[in-house]
Write a protein that binds this DNA or RNA. Structure first.
Length: 515
DNA sequence: CTGGGGAAGGGGCCC
DNA sequence: AGGGCCCCTTCCCCA
């Protein structure tokens, strides 16, 4: 009996051992399957994300192109009879592209040959997110004729750019400023994923184009940096980064503000928003289709989490302007402004004098909106005209738009535009009083003060009859007629009475064809 | 669905 | 500066 029990115990022990082995094997197998599936899923997700980004960018490019063409068409109509300014601009651009342009004031431009930077259908912009150890992002912008252009990969210089001695057009001085970073996934192996980098193959990442002698442009550009190529001392680099947008740790994004034309771009491309850049105020811009009209793209990472006020402020704030800045951008705004730059622009061409507190942005906007010579096809207006709800925008677009909307207070402005045909049309008085919240302007301080109740919500006038509240006394007085039944205005044609003269007037217009 | 009227909320302007 | 009026637009209700 004892042996029997012993055998049973041994048997049970063996069974338990076998079960454990089997369980472990099963767990291991399950884990392996899970890992495999996870890897596959992750790969698929990553692939899908990349495809989504590519498609999104394509869509944005198409939209921008459409907007650009529309703007160009409008501009040509506006200048009917004279040579289209866009043509002039293009000629200038092309001239520069041919090496005819000369930059002054230490500006550098990266001129790409015409035809470069056309985005291919298989637009190879890639954004790799995450490498497990760092937030590395690789953004590759490849032109359509990259192959045709040969290995002539242009990149922005890094170290050399700080040295005025190297301040020359990269096109002519390209040999003097050897590329420091090349990242072409099609021709070169990917660089170690240890930093942010933006590379443009065949053509410059940032092209610019103007001699910067007549108008001023403020461009915000992300520069491509190569870790090993930036030989500047840290203080130098820091100095160049004194832009109110300190680079994120581990990020080599370097914001560059180029002052050649007063333009702030925000194309709303949200690609960078997905890149995880930690730089709150950096962006990069690239130019497209220079053969026609330069079209600027900008990835405004700041807009993804900040507000435009802060952005614009940072852009125009003293600390953000790098008068030696490189980089550039040309986009619709640039084109319009360059062609029809109002006198105020020229007079205010020195950004360094009054670029603080975002004031230039306001001046810029005001110039656009008040100067009839300024086309209204700038992104600002495009944004303003957008319906933030109904317009199908990408998240970044919508966000950018919202930010623009906040700044411009499009409702108020649109209303003001609708009323009386604009701010100053037909009025002799100058609207000197500008609301700091929506930037509407008024002829009188009292009107401004009254208007500000719109923002504060203050309604100090209460109806004693119905507890209704009003921001203005005259509105209360008007309202009280409802309770009193007072209708002092009678129609001379039909005898109908109205509480307000304007009602009578409308009545006369509609029913008696008067006025 | 349409048009008229009322209500409300804006800005311009004069006193 | 505030009051008051005019004019405009938008929204809503109703016949």
């Amino acid at each position: 009996m004892a042996n029997c029990n012993g055998n049973v115990m041994v048997f049970h022990t063996q069974i338990a051992s076998i079960m454990e082995v089997l369980a472990n094997a099963a767990v291991a197998e399950i884990c392996k399957l899970v890992d495999d599936d996870y890897a596959v899923c992750r790969l698929e997700i990553t692939q899908s994300q990349k495809e989504n980004r590519t498609l999104r960018r394509k869509l944005q490019l198409l939209e921008l192109k459409v907007a650009r063409e529309r703007a160009e068409r409008t501009m040509r109509e506006r200048v009917l009879g004279s040579r289209p300014r866009s043509v002039k601009i293009l000629d200038r651009y092309r001239g520069i592209a041919r090496g005819e342009g000369h930059l002054t004031e230490g500006h550098r431009s990266f001129v790409k040959p015409a035809g470069h930077n056309t985005w291919r259908d298989d637009q190879p912009i890639t954004v790799d997110e995450g490498n497990g150890t760092s937030t590395q992002h690789v953004i590759v912008i490849e032109s359509a004729d990259a192959e045709a252009a040969g290995p002539g990969v242009k990149q922005e210089r890094t170290e050399a750019e700080k040295d005025p001695r190297h301040s020359k057009d990269i096109q002519t001085g390209g040999s003097g400023a050897p590329p420091v970073a090349t990242e072409n996934p099609t021709t070169t192996p990917a660089q170690p994923r240890t930093r942010h980098s933006i590379t443009e193959v065949s053509g410059t990442q940032n092209a610019v184009l103007k001699s910067a002698t007549d108008t001023k442009t403020l461009t915000v550009t992300h520069r491509l940096l190569h870790t090993g190529s930036d030989h500047r001392s840290e203080p130098e680099r820091l100095g160049e980064r004194r832009l109110g947008c300190p680079p994120a740790p581990g990020s080599d994004y370097l914001p560059v503000f180029h002052q050649s034309q007063r333009t702030v771009h925000s194309s709303g491309l949200g690609e960078s928003l997905d890149t995880g850049s930690d730089d709150p105020s950096c962006s990069y811009s690239t130019e497209l289709d220079p053969g026609n009209m330069p079209l600027g793209l900008e990835i405004q990472t700041d807009l993804s989490r900040g507000d435009w006020n802060r952005y614009s402020s940072s852009v125009y704030s003293e600390g953000c302007l790098d008068k030696k800045g490189e980089g550039l951008v040309v986009d619709e705004v640039t084109m319009k402004v360059e062609g029809d730059v109002p006198p105020t622009w020229n007079a205010d061409s020195n950004l360094g004098d009054r670029h603080s507190q975002g004031r230039d942005f306001l001046d810029y906007r005001e110039s656009l909106e008040t100067n009839p010579n300024v086309t209204t096809h700038s992104p600002l207006h495009l944004f303003r005209d957008h319906d933030p709800v109904s317009t199908s925008m990408g998240p970044s677009d919508l966000h950018s738009h919202v930010l623009f909307h906040q700044v411009l207070n499009s409702n108020d402005r649109a209303r003001a535009q609708a009323q009386g045909g604009g701010a100053t049309s037909g009025n002799s008085k100058e609207k000197r009083f500008s609301c700091t919240q929506c930037h509407m302007r008024f002829t009188e301080a009292g009107t401004l003060k009254r208007h500000q109740r719109v923002h504060t919500g203050e309604k100090p006038y209460n109806c004693p009859q119905c507890e209704k509240r009003f921001s203005r006394q005259d509105h209360l007085k008007m309202h009280l007629k409802i309770h009193t039944g007072e209708r002092p205005f009678a129609c001379t044609h039909c005898g109908k009475r109205f509480s307000e003269r304007s009602y009578l007037k409308i009545h006369l217009q509609k029913n008696h064809s008067t006025l």
